[in-house]
Structures are given as structure tokens and as C-alpha cells.
Design a protein around this nucleic acid. Structure first.
Lengths: 233, 233
DNA sequence: AAGTGGTCTAGACCACCTT
DNA sequence: AGGTGGTCTAGACCACTTG
């Protein structure tokens, strides 16, 4: 039975959720104060607080000090995705993982890539292109810019052996991470590298990370056809 | 300064995180018990518990009763996305929203769509196809199956005027929601409806919902070219 | 200026899981 | 069977933000 019997915070949450869904509290309306709800439901205020925080995290209500809690006018679906390190993803599927460096070079990123870092001025960065393979077949094509001012070690790493993806994950914590998901048609380069027809629809994950105000890396990971991302069970 | 000074749970969380990042606690290693950490850091156990829960939610550690807390071996990135109701998304971008029903019909879904519901046996459902427009241009093509056994009202709704998407959001709460993101090449139908070249790479969001064990709806939302999804600011 | 949510504490009990 | 995290309580103080 867990402790879902009477005064558990999940029980309180479900009671409040039910009232929102059945219209007792309608969209935009203010809910009672935590303290009043606690008194009414016969539990401690902190239990109500826990339930309300969960509803707020789920996007169902909004809470403000002094302003109280309100049912959100605009219902949204919030979903959490896990983006694994590619090696794990491949090995977890029971396949053999391989990594191949394509090229690396210092250059000034084009405007589009610079914009992702939100940098005021152009800056020279290390571009790394690499391919991740699953059972010998192309799996993900990675096109990455790394900022040597933030990550000087990157210049002396042997990228043919060291996987930049994994090295950064292990050695460079970040404080901010922007993610974008999109679809692109395979260009000539992607088609060749991923061994797919030109124009094939490809799923792309772009990620940019910073440590404090300093840019670390921005990567575009282009998956081979058929890739899809699912909410974590 | 907030209350980020000494014994706030965020401060405690950052101290623990720092120890993980600097190797004091390395991957796979067991962390001290909450109570010991609380004593060492000079705060209440519940404060440590709050901090640890946050780290666990972020995917950095794993916690088990009796087993204790461990640094996760496999670092993952967890990201939360908000999938808005399409009307809101369009209007928030300052554009005019429009909706057009394409067709509706009762039929037995093909195996692929049935599988999404995890149903043992085929079942007749209402298929609804519709187009969402932004400033008069095709924005999202929606291909939906609704289960009339769970949602009988759907059969009598005037779908030319009532948007199935919004009606369901407002009237049918769900208890489980599966989401999938993928990329497809535009087929003949998508190309015609979305006014894009055949073969164009399109971003797709698929969502299946249930209330308890009963299926509600499964929808494939195909976005017009250029669409992308971003972590919420 | 005051009201409301957010946090912290100390203590107790419980549930789950490993040993 | 026992240890560890999860939850609940009651009370106090704090911080944000609105009227």
C-alpha cells in the first residue's frame, strides 16, 4: 500500500489534481493558501507544500510568494528526456561501439555556430568531426566546436584515440546546457558519412554548454535514419 | 544573496556536487549516509535529503533504501521539454492561428498504430486528420486516432469547429503519456498538406495517452519544415 | 507593509531493500 | 533482520512580491 493511504503527499497531490480536473478550481483561479488546505485536509503544511511543488513542477499550477497558487491558464505537457552518452546507448542495445575521428582543425566558427554560444565577438575554436558506429555501421555523426580558451587541454588531446564526447563529459562539468531537437535532410557530406541517400530525413540533437559565462562546446549530433527519442520509462 | 549562504539545501547540493566532480566521491562509489553528511556539514538530515533528491532527479546519483547513495556510473543529460498546445505556440509567436479538419472516419488502426496503445486486440477507433495553420500557412499536420470506448463523446463532436487537440486537453485528463520524437521525409500526402517538397525532412512528435489502463488517443504531429524544439528557458 | 510560499530544524515512524 | 532513505509533523523564520 506504500504510504498512499491517507495523508501522504501523493494522496494530497491527487486530491488537489482531482479538484482542478473536475472544475472545483478552474483555470486561472486562485487555490486556497497552503495553510488552509492543510487544515482542511488534516495534514501538515509541509505536506501540502510538497504536493503543490510537484504540481508546479509538472506545469499544472503556478506558485508565487504573496501571490498564492493558481491553476495555469495554458496547460502544457512537460516531458523529461535522457540523452545518454553515445557509447552507452549503443552498448545498451547490445551492439559493438566504435569511434572514428574524421578531422580536426582550428578555425573561426561561422556566424550560425557562434550565435549558439551567445558570444559578442568571433573567437577561434577547435572543430572536431567524428563518427560513432554501432556494430560497424554509422550511428551518429558528430560535428563539434570546442573553445580552447575554456578548455586548453583539448589542443593536446589525441583525438584519434580519445573520444571528445566522453572526455568532456568526464572532465568538464558545465553549469548551463542548451538543447535543440530538429530534422534535416542529408546533405552530400552527411549522406556519405552516414551511408544514407542524399536528402534522407535525419534526426539532429544540438547541445551547447557553458561553465559560468565561458563557452565550453557546441555539438551537432546527426543520427542515422530511423533514430528516435523516447520519454524515459 | 537569497538564503544561499550556509545551510541552504542548494548550498549543500553544490558542496556534494563539487565533491563528485573533483573526485572525492568517484563514479560508482557509495556516498556517506544522509545522517553522517548532515552531521559533517552541520545541517539537518532533511536538508541533506532535499539536496540529494535534487541530485538524483538530475541523474547524477542513485539512491536506494538500505543500499545508500551512489554516484552514477553512466552520466546522462536530463532535459525537460514543454510541448505546448499548438494554438498557444502559434499565438505566442505573434501569429494568427487557424484550424482545418481534413477528414474523419471510423476504422481499425494498422498494426503500427495499434502497437502504440499496447492493446492485445484490434479495436475500431476514430481517425481524425487536421491541419493547424500559422498566419494562413501550414504549421502542423495532425493525424490522430481516438478510442471511442474510452471517449464516447468524440463521435458526436463537431470536429469541423471543435479542435480535437484542445477538446481532449480540456476534457480528458490522462494518467500516462508516452512521447516520441523523430524525423521523417515528407510523403506525397504530407508534401501536399504542408505545402513542402516531397522528401523534405520533417520533425515529428508522437504522443499516446491513457487513463488508467484505457487508451485515449494517439497522435502524430508532423511539423512544417524548419520546426525545432528547445529546452525551456 | 503585510501576506504567502519557501526553507530549515528536530524528532519520529515507516517502507523498502540488501545482506 | 537490520540499515538506510522516504515521509510526516509542528513550529519557526525568511524572502519574495503584490497591493
Amino acid at each position: 500500500m506504500g504510504r498512499t493511504d491517507r495523508h501522504s503527499w501523493t494522496e494530497v497531490r491527487e486530491r488537489i489534481r482531482a479538484r482542478i480536473l473536475d472544475g472545483t478550481y478552474h483555470a486561472g483561479q486562485k487555490l486556497p493558501r497552503d495553510e488552509d488546505l492543510a487544515a482542511e485536509l488534516g495534514c501538515a503544511r509541509s505536506t501540502v507544500q510538497r504536493a503543490m511543488r510537484d504540481l508546479a513542477d509538472a506545469g499544472m499550477i503556478e506558485r508565487r510568494r504573496k501571490g498564492g497558487s493558481r491553476v495555469r491558464l495554458d496547460p502544457v505537457t512537460r516531458a523529461t528526456f535522457e540523452i545518454p552518452v553515445i557509447r552507452q546507448e549503443v552498448e545498451q542495445a547490445g551492439k559493438k561501439y566504435d569511434y572514428r575521428l574524421i578531422d580536426r582543425a582550428l578555425a573561426i566558427p561561422p556566424a550560425g555556430d557562434l550565435a549558439k554560444f551567445e558570444l559578442p565577438r568571433p573567437r577561434e575554436m577547435l572543430r572536431i568531426r567524428a563518427l560513432h558506429l554501432a556494430d560497424g555501421k554509422p550511428h551518429v555523426f558528430e560535428d563539434r566546436w570546442v573553445c580552447p580558451e575554456t578548455v586548453p587541454e583539448i589542443l593536446t588531446l589525441d583525438l584519434a584515440r580519445e573520444n571528445a564526447n566522453e572526455w568532456l563529459v568526464r572532465n568538464k562539468p558545465y553549469s548551463r546546457c542548451d538543447l535543440r531537437f530538429l530534422a534535416i535532410g542529408a546533405g552530400a557530406r552527411e549522406a556519405e558519412i552516414l551511408a544514407c541517400p542524399p536528402g534522407a530525413a535525419l534526426f539532429v540533437i544540438e547541445r551547447t554548454t557553458w561553465i559560468g559565462p565561458d563557452p565550453i562546446t557546441s555539438v551537432r549530433a546527426v543520427a542515422a535514419p530511423g533514430y528516435q527519442l523516447t520519454t524515459r520509462a
